[in-house]
């Protein structure tokens, strides 16, 4: 069941991302920090080890607006693991970022009943602080309805 530090629906022993060079900013910055190519300025997500436009392999972090629109979603009813049995039903959303046209981010939609999740909902990012997986605290991007802010958690 959810620990006190978790905002999302999933349990403490759930899968967390491995923080690696390519995704460190994304998972630790506490901002919607995208990977921007140092050569041509292209933003890409998920981060990759090479720019898909110019082939450069150096990047700088670029924070964009922490807002977006629900582009798609699913409400998961069937638990695929015993540790999820008490988490279902939960919503997973795909958010189209306002600050990076064409780029989309996966997260949970927090504080919204699953039957109110819909394509087109304006959402804003929040961050779940999670125990370090590789030395640094994880700040996992999650999403809330824009019209529900501010929300204490």
């Amino acid at each position: 069941m959810s620990g006190q530090h978790r905002l999302g629906p999933l349990p403490d022993d759930w899968t967390l991302p491995a923080v690696e060079a390519v995704n460190r900013a994304w998972f630790t910055s506490g901002a919607i920090t995208l990977q921007q190519c140092a050569g041509c300025g292209t933003l890409q997500h998920p981060p990759e080890e090479i720019c898909h436009v110019c082939g450069a392999m150096t990047f700088s972090p670029r924070a964009v607006a922490p807002t977006g629109i629900v582009h798609s979603y699913t409400v998961v009813h069937h638990s695929v693991h015993p540790s999820l049995d008490r988490a279902v039903p939960y919503a997973v959303v795909l958010v189209a970022l306002d600050g990076a046209p064409g780029l989309r981010v996966v997260g949970n939609l927090l504080g919204v009943p699953v039957d109110e999740v819909a394509i087109g909902l304006p959402v804003v990012a929040t961050w779940e602080e999670l125990p370090p997986t590789d030395g640094e605290p994880l700040l996992l991007p999650q999403w809330q309805r824009q019209d529900q802010l501010p929300q204490q958690t």
Binding site: L10, T15, L16, P46, T74, V80, H81, V92, V105, T133
Partner: peptide
């Protein structure tokens, strides 16, 4: 589950998005 998610799964599995049904549900919706 319960392991460190690497590669593409790092951006989906932590949110409980991991089975083929869930992935294609997102596309289909």
């Amino acid at each position: 589950v319960g392991r460190r998610a690497r590669g593409a799964a790092a951006y989906t599995a932590p949110y409980g998005m991991l089975s083929p049904a869930q992935i294609t549900a997102m596309q289909t919706m």
